[in-house]
Nucleic acid binder design. Structure first.
Lengths: 214, 214
DNA sequence: ATACTGCTAGAGCGATCTATCCAATCGCAG
DNA sequence: CTGCGATTGGATAGATCGCTCTAGCAGTAT
């Protein structure tokens, strides 16, 4: 049985229970959403503050390094959120076993539903900003690299646990990452969920093949 | 025999022979390079003009619609250039036949060499800007969608010509697109050519499978 | 009450951005 | 040559950018 959940980010862990999240969290949430939709340079500080209903002074109180520090923090936070999401699909609960082929299919299906339900606006919260700053800001690039690596690690160990060899597990993880990220790009640009469906079928098939020959 | 060429864009067709390209072409070339590296909003008009050694007035002479028109034109131009590149690998010359598996491998190998040789700066000239503007500018989004579709069409007919069914050919084209674009993202972020190598092996294997069962 | 700390609130600065406008210059046809 | 449209060069407007600064607020400890 696979986890029933959407691909939406879970509520931040540091939010006061029963209350609205703290200012810092609201800023980070708004940043992740806007950066993912319009990119880093395409999103002004003021729009972030407006979206998060935060006062101007608070931003530089929590992020003295300014927009760059906010960008890196936003990337790290999104990286953790998405890693937990991948874990929800690919890491078993107490003593359970995960059907990695089914998990792959479920993950892509959930992704297709989410992107369509947000009118093709919200896909990967890091990809947009990563491409923008990979050759421009080394600290942000490193934050994105660590986020991506953490996702790959989760996938790799899931495949290894399922019986696939270490090297092939890493390759499978990279293949799955490329499939979903490429599909996000194509899906958002064409405004169609088809690429995600197609990429999901191919990814599941690759995983099944690797399992069979292990 | 596969075409021996780099993944670099060919010289513009409208360039005066033996002379340096016209102002409009120089602006478009510089735009494609800078947009691909730093994104659309991250690239200022002045940097484009400086890089293309073009005067300020010329930009608004050739692109009265301003930066948005320039962005759309840049996307269209890059789309044509990359389509011709894909054709060089996947479309046979006079009465020849293309080994689509070999073409796939060669394409990814060439991409890995190019991205590493540009210090992980130049990969897909459209992906960065496409993610940025997909939810912001409809004209530019459509330009990117047309460019991507034209690449998919070339790939699809190559597979169909090689004997793969129409539906499966389209799926294969989308898979290959997702693999290379996702690999570009991961490669630029991690500063490693490995993702492209891994994605290339997987893509070639998918193509081989499809050929076998056709 | 007083003092201290963490956070809020916004005015406003210098820099930078896109875009407009116009005069100077070029290339070529008559 | 003369005339004329196409192109160039840049000054500058108007808006927006990221960011700094200071003043004030709430809550807690003393």
């Amino acid at each position: 049985m696979l986890p029933v959940m959407s691909l939406r980010k879970p509520a931040p862990a540091t939010a006061t229970p029963g209350d609205r999240p703290g200012t810092r969290d609201r800023i980070l949430d708004a940043s992740a959403e806007l950066f993912g939709r319009q990119g880093f340079t395409g999103t002004g500080i003021k729009s972030i503050l407006a979206a998060s209903e935060a006062p101007f002074g608070s931003l530089y109180h929590f992020f003295p390094g300014g927009k760059d520090e906010l960008g890196a923090a936003s990337i790290r936070r999104s990286g953790i959120g998405y890693r937990q999401l991948v874990e929800a699909f690919f890491v078993p609960g107490e003593g359970g076993v995960v059907d990695v082929v089914g998990a792959t299919t479920a993950f892509f299906t959930g992704a297709a539903e989410m992107i369509a339900s947000t009118d093709y606006a919200d896909a990967c919260p890091i990809a947009t900003i990563a491409l923008e700053i990979a050759s421009v800001s080394e600290p942000m690039r490193e934050a994105a690299a660590e986020a991506f690596e953490s996702w790959l690690t989760v996938l790799q160990s899931a495949f290894a646990t399922a019986g696939v060899g270490q090297v092939r597990s890493r390759e499978l993880a990279v293949e799955l990452f490329c499939a979903i990220e490429g599909a996000f790009l194509l899906s958002r640009t064409l405004r169609s969920p088809d690429p995600i469906r197609i990429a999901g079928l191919a990814a599941a098939s690759s995983v099944a093949d690797a399992l069979r020959s292990s």
